[in-house]
Amino acid sequence: MTGASVPEFTWRRLAATNFPMLCGWLAQPHVRRWWNHEFTPEAVERDFGACLRGEEPGEDLLIFADAEPIGLIQRCRLHDFPEYLEDLVKLITIPAEAASLDYFIGDPERVGRGLGPAMLRAMIAATWLEYPLADSIIIPVAAANRPSWRALEKAGMRRIAQGPMTPDNPVDDGHHYVYAIDRPGRRIAGPGRPDYGIPAPI
């Protein structure tokens, strides 16, 4: 972060008591544009309650910067969500233990200040520890969402593929970029390789 110290990022699993705040974040125009998620209490309970109760895989993580809640990161093993993979596997090969992240900063006052890349760097580093089998983190992002994919690039991820995927928001054309980062010390693919996930020759 230019001209400012990097905050300390912490996180914990989303709790039901956080749902009102989450409703407010999902209603923010900068979040609605890309997440396209209903933000009524009933919709939030329906779509986030199952993970909270352990009925679905993955994690919904409330992110804090210097102890202030700023956003949400969803983290999962990609292969735990086969319906999500239907489009992605047409573009790249997915390693069996590949992880993925989805994310937003909810407070509009905190957007555009460099928090996104710093938050992602912290979560990437934690994922190598907390998902010890994961060789890679793979994140598809709408090509039109430049702030999001620029944050991924600043966090150290690289674009490895692009192509059509079902958009979260039907106003989008569905063109996506796919970004990836490999576990440090275990480089399993090169930029732009169509066979991502297949070990490269040593």
Results as ranks from 00 to 15, higher is better:
A43L: 03
A15V: 06
L26Q: 13
V178I: 10
G156V: 01
C76T: 06
C76F: 08
I92E: 00
F48A: 03
M123G: 00
A125R: 02
P191E: 11
L78S: 02
M119K: 00
I70W: 11
R186I: 04
E109F: 03
I188N: 06
G192P: 10
W35E: 04
A65Y: 02
I202V: 04
P170T: 04
R121W: 09
H30Y: 09
P95I: 00
A142D: 08
P29Q: 13
A118W: 15
G156A: 03
A65I: 02
G114T: 14
A98W: 00
R110G: 06
L78N: 03
R183G: 01
L52K: 12
E83F: 04
D80C: 02
H79F: 01
T166Q: 15
I188H: 06
W11A: 07
E83L: 05
D60L: 02
R158V: 03
A4R: 08
P191G: 01
R158T: 03
A144S: 08
A142Y: 01
I124F: 10
A15L: 15
E86G: 06
S5N: 05
P191K: 06
T127V: 09
D135L: 14
I202M: 06
R75I: 04
A134C: 14
T40N: 11
M165W: 13
W128M: 07
F64Y: 08
F81C: 13
F64M: 06
A43V: 08
V141C: 02
G116L: 07
R183M: 01
P29S: 13
F64C: 08
E8L: 04
W35N: 00
A200W: 01
A98Q: 05
L88D: 03
L152Y: 09
E38Q: 08
P191L: 12
R12Q: 07
L52D: 15
G3W: 01
W128R: 10
C23K: 14
E55T: 14
L88S: 01
I105A: 00
I94D: 02
Y84I: 05
W11T: 10
G3M: 02
A50W: 15
L120W: 02
G156W: 00
Q162G: 15
D195L: 03
P201Y: 03
D172T: 01
M157R: 03
A122Q: 07
G197F: 13
F39W: 09
I198K: 08
